[in-house]
């Protein structure tokens, strides 16, 4: 009998967990994971929010930058530069969903860096940008 209860509560817990894939990680944990990745590069000396901000706002190839869609204020609502589709704020202070799912973070860095730079971003660039975004206040 007890075993059935145990199995049942386990199934219930599993159902609840899979139904609400709420915040698997925190932005600080995501940053730590990127740091672990960057630490493997020779000469790595930590991240810089200042460098991240510059990267975020500097137009690269195709005259695009992160801010082309996310605007110069990552705490504000953005707009897709081609389609005008509304983009929710990127800074964790303004949007608690941001940088809480490692898989999503990896997917969007890959996609957007390819659009802006024609290549993937380095762990250094990603860490700098996230460090910057974490300093942005609402």
């Amino acid at each position: 009998m007890l075993r059935i209860y145990f199995v049942f509560s386990l199934m219930f817990a599993l159902a609840v967990l899979t139904a609400n894939p709420a915040f698997a990680e925190t932005p600080v944990e995501v940053l730590a994971a990127i740091k672990a990745e960057a630490a493997g590069t020779p000469g790595f000396q930590g991240f810089s929010a200042e460098r991240g901000e510059k990267f975020f706002k500097t137009k690269q190839k195709h005259k695009l930058s992160c801010s082309s869609c996310h605007t110069d204020n990552p705490a504000a609502q953005g707009k897709h530069s081609e389609t005008d589709k509304v983009i929710k704020p990127l800074a964790p202070a303004a949007n608690e969903e941001r940088f809480t799912d490692m898989k999503k973070v990896a997917k969007w860095f890959k996609r957007n860096c390819n659009d802006v730079l024609d290549r993937e971003c380095t762990a250094q660039e990603k860490g700098d940008v996230l460090s910057y975004l974490l300093t942005v206040k609402k």
């Binding site: 009998m1 049942f8 159902a15 139904a19």
Partner: peptide, 24 residues
């Protein structure tokens, strides 16, 4: 005892079925 076990099982099945229907 047997009855309690049966009810628990039924309950589990119903809850799971509801969950599956909702997500579908």
């Amino acid at each position: 005892m047997f009855k309690a076990k049966y009810i628990t099982l039924m309950f589990a099945v119903v809850v799971l079925a509801m969950g599956a229907m909702m997500s579908a």
